[in-house]
Computed example of a mutant assay.
Amino acid sequence: MVKNLMFDLGGVIMDIDRNHCVKAFEKLGMENIDSFLGLYGQKGPFLQLEEGKISADEFRAEIRKMLPRHVSDEVMDAAFNEFLIGIPVSRLRSLEQLHRHYPLYMLSNTNPIMMNSRIDACFRADGHDINYYFDGIVTSYEALSCKPERRIFDYAARKFGIDPGETLFFDDSQANVEAAVSYGYQAVIIRPGEEFKTVLDNYLSKDL
């Protein structure tokens, strides 16, 4: 039985484009950006920021060491936010509709720069803030752990007070989905072009 719904953010709710971000940092003169940014995981200071090991200011200081000229915080943050395309209003309304029937939670590998700027703004597109849609949110930098590690999934279950076996998790990474299942969650993958509402309907219909 599914009593709770837990969502990844990028590739599930938020449309993303890694190449936009790579090109934005290349324009700033960062030659090796491609080696740091992955579609499902980051490396170097990008990963350290997601894991909560360094602050936003420390991250910016590390990136400046790799740039040929000084750039402001605002310019650097704007380049980083190019990873995020946006959230269709129709998807926000799907969350709103589901929230009438289920507790909703978000579990995301993300960072405070994006969370406090572009992500916050995108969730306001239909007149509400992010907390309107979710009963609880766990980020990797809060949990000091990134998916697919067990630590972040266990942290979420404790914080939300949920039973993993009664929770359906949506993610666009096969590794994260398989990890969630191994930790006792129900989980489904969201493939490019799929909408979580359709995937949910198909999943629930199998139990009828």
Score class of each variant (00 low, 15 high):
Lys27His: 09
Ser94Gln: 14
Asp34His: 14
Ile54Met: 13
Arg158Ala: 09
Glu82Pro: 08
Thr167Val: 02
Gln42His: 11
Phe25Val: 06
Lys53Tyr: 05
Ser108Glu: 02
Phe123Cys: 03
Ile87Gly: 01
Leu84Glu: 05
Gly11Thr: 07
Met115Cys: 00
Glu74Ala: 14
Lys197Ser: 14
Ala78Ile: 01
Lys65Ile: 02
Tyr155Val: 07
Glu58Asn: 10
Cys146Ala: 13
Leu204Gly: 08
Gly29Glu: 11
Ser55Thr: 15
Ala61Gly: 05
Asp171Trp: 09
Gly184His: 08
Phe160Pro: 12
Ile130Lys: 01
Tyr185Phe: 15
Val199Asn: 07
Lys43Arg: 15
Met6Lys: 03
Lys27Pro: 02
Tyr155Pro: 04
Ala78Trp: 11
Pro164Ala: 09
Tyr132Leu: 04
Gly38Ile: 04
Leu204Arg: 15
Tyr185Asp: 06
Leu104Asn: 11
Cys122Met: 10
Ala121Arg: 04
Met1His: 12
Gly10Pro: 03
Lys23Pro: 00
Leu84Cys: 06
Gly86Trp: 07
Leu200Met: 09
Val2Arg: 14
Met1Val: 12
Tyr155Ile: 04
His70Trp: 10
Val181Phe: 06
Tyr141Ile: 02
Tyr40Arg: 09
Ser173Tyr: 10
Pro164Met: 11
Phe160Trp: 15
Gly193Lys: 00
Ala61His: 09
Lys65Asn: 09
Asp34Gly: 06
Leu98Gln: 15
Ala61Asn: 15
Tyr105Gly: 09
Asp17Tyr: 14
